[in-house]
Amino acid sequence: MENNSFKIIEIPKIKDTRGNLAVIEKDCLPFTFKRVYYLYDVPSDAYRGGHAHKDQLEFLVALSGSFNVILDDGKTKNRVTLNKPDKGLLIPTGVWRELENFSSGSVCLVLASDEFDEADYIREYDDFLKFKGA
């Protein structure tokens, strides 16, 4: 997978002895987010995702705990572990993603470039490969 197909982005943080504060605004992401959701209480043996988006960008952050994200561009697969609340994963369009290996108490925050639209999802892997021209 090409290095520019996904990106780890450092989230600006303010360190303080009372606790750190991370801020996602304006120029932190290369898109304006229109939807925010989060995954929690995911059993360690379960997985989430299993789809790609045609147009929507997503930014994932492990607010608590850790999990793995498997990224597949139709040719190459990469595994990224998210485990720091001040670093997030930018997933561009046309990338199949699966989330697995959730630690106990993990929370995955997702910032999406658009509101939910079922027509933007590719939910079958064979359809994804056709979309990618593979």
Rank of each mutant, 00 (worst) to 15 (best):
D55T: 14
V36M: 12
D45N: 15
E100V: 03
L29D: 13
S66Y: 11
F67R: 02
I70M: 02
D55G: 08
F102N: 05
E98H: 03
P92R: 08
S66F: 08
S113I: 13
T32W: 08
Y38W: 14
L111P: 10
G50Q: 04
K77H: 00
Y37G: 15
D55M: 10
L71W: 00
S104N: 13
S103V: 05
V36D: 05
C108P: 01
K34P: 09
L82M: 06
N78M: 01
L57E: 13
V42R: 03
S106A: 15
G88R: 02
G88N: 09
V61N: 11
T76C: 00
L99I: 05
F59L: 07
F33W: 15
D86L: 02
K87W: 07
G88M: 08
A52C: 00
R97I: 00
L99Q: 08
N78A: 07
H51W: 01
V69C: 10
H53L: 12
A62V: 05
T81P: 01
E58W: 07
F33P: 15
T93W: 02
S103N: 06
E58P: 04
I70T: 06
V95N: 03
T93F: 03
E58C: 07
E100A: 04
V36C: 11
D55W: 07
V110R: 02
V69K: 03
D55N: 14
C108S: 14
K34V: 14
L39G: 12
A46T: 07
P92W: 01
K84G: 09
G94C: 05
D72T: 00
R97S: 05
L89G: 08
S106W: 08
Y47I: 09
Y37T: 10
N101C: 06
S113A: 15
K34A: 15
F59A: 07
S44W: 05
